[in-house]
Computed example of a mutant assay.
Amino acid sequence: MHIRLPTREEIHTAFVQGEAAVVELILDLGTQVEGWARQLETQAMALKE
């Protein structure tokens, strides 16, 4: 599971670029979190077996 969090510079750049860039940054993070959740569910099911 690779965690790719934005750097402070990337966050600042998105802030300077405006609302659309900040929204995109947050949506990208949300997509990652959903992927991690799916992986954890799969691992939990494997452990139960």
Results as ranks from 00 to 15, higher is better:
Ile26Phe: 04
Ile26Glu: 03
Ile26Tyr: 01
His12Gly: 08
Val23Asn: 07
Ala20Glu: 15
Gly30His: 00
Leu27Thr: 01
Glu9Ala: 14
Glu49Gln: 10
Gln43Thr: 02
Leu5Tyr: 07
Val23Gln: 12
Gln17Pro: 05
Ala21Ser: 14
Glu24Ile: 01
Ile3Leu: 15
Lys48His: 02
Arg38His: 04
Phe15Trp: 14
Ile11Trp: 06
Thr13Tyr: 08
Thr7His: 06
Leu40Gly: 00
Ile11Asp: 01
Gly30Ile: 00
Asp28Pro: 00
Asp28Gly: 05
Leu40Lys: 02
Ile26Cys: 03
Leu47Trp: 06
Met1Cys: 04
Ala20Tyr: 14
Asp28Arg: 10
Ala21Thr: 06
Glu41Cys: 02
Val22Ser: 06
Val16Trp: 02
Ala21Phe: 11
Gln17Arg: 15
Arg8Gln: 11
Ala44Asn: 01
Gly35Asp: 13
Glu9Ile: 07
Glu9Arg: 06
Glu34Ile: 03
Met45Cys: 07
Val33Ile: 15
Ala21Asp: 09
Glu19Gly: 08
Thr13Trp: 08
Leu5Met: 10
Leu40Phe: 03
Leu29Trp: 04
Glu34Asn: 07
Glu34Arg: 06
Val33Trp: 09
Val33Pro: 00
Val23Gly: 00
Leu25His: 05
Glu10Pro: 01
His2Ala: 14
Thr42Cys: 03
His2Ser: 14
Glu24Arg: 13
Ala37Phe: 07
Thr42Pro: 00
Thr7Arg: 11
Glu24Asp: 14
Glu24Pro: 00
Asp28Ala: 11
Glu10Asn: 05
Gly18Phe: 06
Ala21Trp: 10
Arg38Phe: 03
Arg4Ala: 13
His12Tyr: 12
Leu27Pro: 00
Gly30Arg: 01
Gln32Lys: 12
Met1Glu: 10
Lys48Asp: 02
Glu34Thr: 04
Ile11Val: 15
Lys48Met: 04
Gln43Ser: 04
Glu9His: 04
Pro6Ser: 08
Val33Phe: 13
Gln17Leu: 15
Phe15Val: 12
Gln39Tyr: 11
Leu25Ile: 12
Leu27Val: 06
Ala14Met: 12
Ala37Glu: 13
Trp36Ile: 15
Lys48Leu: 10
